[in-house]
Amino acid sequence: MAELKTGTLDRDASRKVALVTGASRGIGRSTALRLATDGYDVAVIYVGSAEPFEEVVEELRSAGACAKAYECDVSSSKEVDACVGQVLDDFGHVWTLVNNAGITRDGIMARMKDSDFDSVIAVNLKGAFNMVRALTRTFMRQRGGRIINMSSVVGIMGNAGQVNYSASKAGLIGLTKSVARELASRNVTCNAIAPGFVETAMTAGLSDATRKSYEGQIPLGRMCVPEDIAAAISFLASDEASLITGVVLPVDGGMAM
């Protein structure tokens, strides 16, 4: 493995760098914080208001990481190329990429607008492709790295009212396996996480009946929390997972088995 570069930021050269998209809350925030405690410095990507990401950056710094936020629309290859270039200038390298950015535009297929289908594919699937492509030469030069894509249980099982979202998450599985094959010779692993129902601010507002209906579909009887997903990502990013690539790891309480 080539020596990792340090970049222009004042940081500990012994720490690897993780780039996490969609890290303002939920799974992305928990992942960024977990990687910081694992010894990573962390670059986070946001779109829209910078305020939530400024809070995340402060949390990451409090955890001992060198951290910085970057505004970027991951669906735009031009923006991604520019943003990744700046991250590399600042941090020197990226060892782990977590493609977590995603959106939903749910609705039954018969009434779904083209724009709702296209925007979900553009962010969830093409966004991950843009990020991986922008970092491929870096991973190849340093002869190592970790790519972790956020799929979903609905990418495995499908879900009524989410043809666009399910298609994007199923597409990520194909992307993951193909990238794993392309980059394996350079010691770069590429894996996907497939979360089930996850405790979020949105699910906190569900009625008891709806919640019980969801939990009834989970053999282990409870929803995931973001920290469950972050723990799986932490493992796939670790040295202990160096022989694991092309895998789709469900973190769903047994929903998709």
Rank of each mutant, 00 (worst) to 15 (best):
L9W: 11
A13C: 07
V20F: 04
G22N: 03
S24M: 08
G39L: 10
Y40R: 08
D41I: 13
V44W: 03
Y46I: 02
Y46L: 02
A50K: 15
E51V: 12
E54I: 12
E55G: 06
A63Y: 14
C66L: 07
C72P: 01
S77F: 12
L88H: 04
G92F: 07
G92T: 07
V94Q: 05
I103D: 05
I108D: 14
D118H: 15
A122T: 05
G127C: 03
A134W: 06
T136A: 10
F139Y: 11
F139I: 00
M140N: 09
M140A: 13
R141F: 11
R143E: 14
G145V: 07
R146V: 04
I147S: 02
N149V: 02
S152T: 11
S152M: 00
V163Y: 13
G171Y: 07
K177P: 08
S178K: 10
A184R: 14
N187I: 01
V188K: 10
V188A: 09
A192L: 08
I193F: 09
A201W: 09
T203K: 10
A209V: 14
P219D: 10
R222T: 15
C224N: 15
V225T: 12
D228Q: 04
L249F: 12
G254H: 08
G254E: 12
A256D: 06
M257E: 05
